[in-house]
Amino acid sequence: MADTPGYLLCFGLGYAATRLARGLLRDGWRVLGTARTPSRCEALQDAIPGLAMVPFDGVTPLDPAAFAGVTHVLSSIPPDADGDPVLRQHDHDLATAPLSWIGYFSTTGVYGDSGGGWVDEGTPVRPTQERTRWRVAAEEAWFGLWRDHDAPVHVLRLGGIYGPGRSVFDQIRAGTARRIGRPGHVFSRIHVDDIGLVVAASMHDPDPGAIYNLCDDEPAEPAEVLDYACALMGRPPFPNEPFERVAPTLSPMALSFWADHRRVQNERLWDDLRLRLLYPTFRQGLEAIRREEQGLVPPGPPPRRKPGCHDDP
């Protein structure tokens, strides 16, 4: 993160960005976020002391005054069939504002299906679904700001996000968890607090044009994650349901979750940012969530570690 607190404008204050905003505010930053409706803006301002919010629906641009004093911009708003909503309204502002860092939350889904093989930031993108094709187009548009206007753009490709309030524990309690068995079919994940760790490190040491895969060290089968969560809760594991048997009952969205199979490499987080994740596998991540749920640690992101202060492996 910058040596002195900055001012972040965050388009789309969703789950991960909200957790990030809490940590930045605690560190002395100013944060201005957007949400689609005034009521959602008001709710977030009430919930997070010091946070400022303005409505942004992707159709009406922000008042130009919203960019005054902003040093960093993050967009977590997904694209649609017509492109990226933020760039549609603010490409000129982003290209000309004196910013230190711009981050765009994308997805590791842009790699498509590697048949279970490893992919890294240099792997060509081969999206297999409409929404990931939109993502590839959006990435290209953001990189256009960097190539054409020297804007400090960074693309952050996120794996499956989990954390307090959005984990397998919540699925278990809600009665929606199922142990769908498909041996060898793994997914890459990232704890929400590790997203904040990576964003802070990238802000501290910007590398315009960089791409980072945000995922932990161990891609894993969903059944393995569910089994571990059950053990932490002291309850018996769920019965196995073979994927082939349950596939006809799954929604198109659920089936799309299983359509691609890849293992996502994250070594650039160490090589470029000198980071070690807080939760390098789902086990440490689930254990931390469980401790927070049980009140053994205070809620909210843990204190940030300074980049470059980790021991070599």
Rank of each mutant, 00 (worst) to 15 (best):
P239D: 08
P239N: 05
N240D: 15
N240F: 12
E241V: 14
P242S: 00
P242Q: 02
F243K: 01
F243M: 03
E244F: 06
E244K: 08
E244Q: 11
V246R: 05
V246Y: 07
V246C: 08
A247H: 10
A247E: 14
P248W: 01
P248D: 05
P248L: 02
L250K: 00
L250E: 05
S251Q: 04
M253T: 12
A254D: 11
A254E: 13
S256F: 08
S256A: 15
S256E: 15
F257H: 00
W258P: 07
A259S: 14
D260H: 02
H261A: 11
H261Y: 04
R262G: 09
R262E: 09
R263A: 12
V264C: 06
V264W: 02
V264S: 05
V264F: 02
V264Y: 06
V264A: 00
V264T: 07
Q265A: 13
N266W: 07
N266L: 05
N266T: 04
R268I: 03
R268L: 10
L269H: 07
W270E: 08
D271Q: 13
D271R: 13
D271S: 12
D271Y: 11
D271M: 11
D272K: 13
L275W: 01
L275A: 03
R276E: 11
L278Q: 13
Y279Q: 01
P280R: 00
P280F: 04
T281C: 04
F282W: 14
R283N: 08
R283I: 08
R283D: 07
R283K: 14
R283V: 09
G285A: 01
G285S: 01
L286I: 06
E287P: 10
A288I: 09
R290G: 09
R291G: 08
R291L: 14
E292Q: 15
E293I: 06
E293R: 12
Q294P: 07
G295A: 03
L296N: 05
L296D: 13
L296C: 05
P298L: 03
P299E: 00
P299H: 02
G300D: 08
P301F: 01
P302F: 05
P302K: 01
R304K: 10
R304N: 10
R305I: 09
R305D: 13
P307M: 06
P307W: 09
P307R: 11
P307A: 10
G308S: 00
C309Y: 12
H310W: 15
H310Y: 15
H310C: 13
D311A: 15
D312R: 14
